[in-house]
């Protein structure tokens, strides 16, 4: 019974965070851009979330006549489902975790690679040239960056000797992995931004080039699903960064473990938003080039050095 409550609780909190990020992002962007942002509905404008959601629900749910109907409908569901599934293995606190799988990291990587299907299928089913270009870009970008993302986490796995996330958190009781694996952190985060296709790596959508890329044709709640999926993705990568590199729920005892977890996660969410506010977008081929020519050698080197040190310490 308690297990069901955890599942429902996690789902409830996550969906609310994702919706709340609409408000948070707009307010933070506004703050950094010397303007006010949404500040009318409710205290500090927080009810804009409600207004936006209602608007999305009441918009005409339009499927273009030239689209591949069933694929078109399925695509937005995939992104939300796959990201939500990833949260299964995130330990919010020692006791709040849906399922502490012993292949936790592998499960996370598997689920996040499923996300690419939503982009490819959405772009393809829209039968629109902009969407197609966006889907092409998205597919290659996400597949490439999954490689680095996976490899960057392997150093930690080596040091811990486990894929289980609770083990990884517990292994950080003395020193956070950010100090042992700084290169991995940078690469993981870059790959994470590319994976969630957020600015500066929002190349599949690239508003000024492809209008909205793979989801140009989507409206109403289907568009909303892509939107929620993106924010859930941001939350997921932030939560993973906090868990893998910053000790997850660990922290001084004056706050409960889940509070530490959320503080760390939100710090990274804010960093995501700050990135969006400050950086221009590289070109698609530049992104791929950096990936294969810089990040891949770097992450392999990191893996080699970590392995060597781990072997040396064990004697």
């Amino acid at each position: 019974m308690q297990h069901i409550w955890i599942v429902l609780g996690v789902l409830f909190v996550l969906l609310n965070i994702a919706a709340g990020l609409i408000w948070l992002e707009r307010r933070m962007l506004a703050m950094w851009q010397d303007r006010l942002g949404p500040n009318r509905a409710g205290p500090l404008g927080i009810l804009i979330v409600l207004a936006d959601t209602l608007k999305l629900f009441f918009k005409e749910d339009w499927i273009p006549p030239f689209a591949d109907k069933w694929v078109f409908i399925t695509a937005p569901a995939i992104v939300v489902a796959s990201v939500l599934m990833s949260f299964v293995i995130i330990p919010f606190s020692p006791s709040i975790i849906v399922s502490d799988l012993n292949v936790g990291i592998l499960f996370f990587l598997a689920m996040s690679s499923l996300g690419v299907y939503s982009i490819v299928l959405g772009g393809w089913a829209s039968n629109n040239k902009y969407s197609l270009l966006g889907a092409l870009r998205g597919a290659s970008q996400m597949i490439a960056y999954e490689v680095f993302m996976g490899l960057s986490l392997m150093g930690i796995v080596m040091l811990t000797g486990s894929f289980k996330l609770s083990d990884i958190v517990n292994a950080q009781k003395d020193v956070w992995f950010v100090f042992k694996q700084p290169v991995a952190l940078v690469i993981f985060f870059i790959a994470g931004v590319a994976e969630t296709h957020r600015l500066p790596f929002d190349i599949p959508e690239a508003e000024s080039e492809l209008i909205a890329g793979f989801h140009s044709e989507y409206s109403g709640m289907k568009f909303g699903m892509f939107f929620i999926g993106e924010y859930l993705g941001v939350t997921l990568i932030s939560a993973m960064t906090a868990t893998m590199f910053f000790g997850g729920w660990l922290g001084p005892a004056f706050l409960p473990p889940w509070a530490w977890f959320f503080i760390k996660t939100f710090a990274f969410i804010l960093f995501f938003i700050l990135l969006r506010a400050s950086l221009p977008r590289p070109r698609y081929d530049q992104l791929m080039e950096t990936g294969w020519k810089v990040l891949l050698p770097l992450v392999l080197l990191n893996l080699m050095v970590t392995g060597a040190i781990a072997l040396w310490i064990r004697g």
Binding site: L29, Q33, D34, S208, L279, P280
Partner: peptide
């Protein structure tokens, strides 16, 4: 121009 290459913020400062 900054916005065309994906930089969101400068346009707000410059319009101010």
């Amino acid at each position: 121009f900054a916005q065309d290459v994906g930089q969101l913020s400068p346009v707000f400062y410059m319009f101010t």
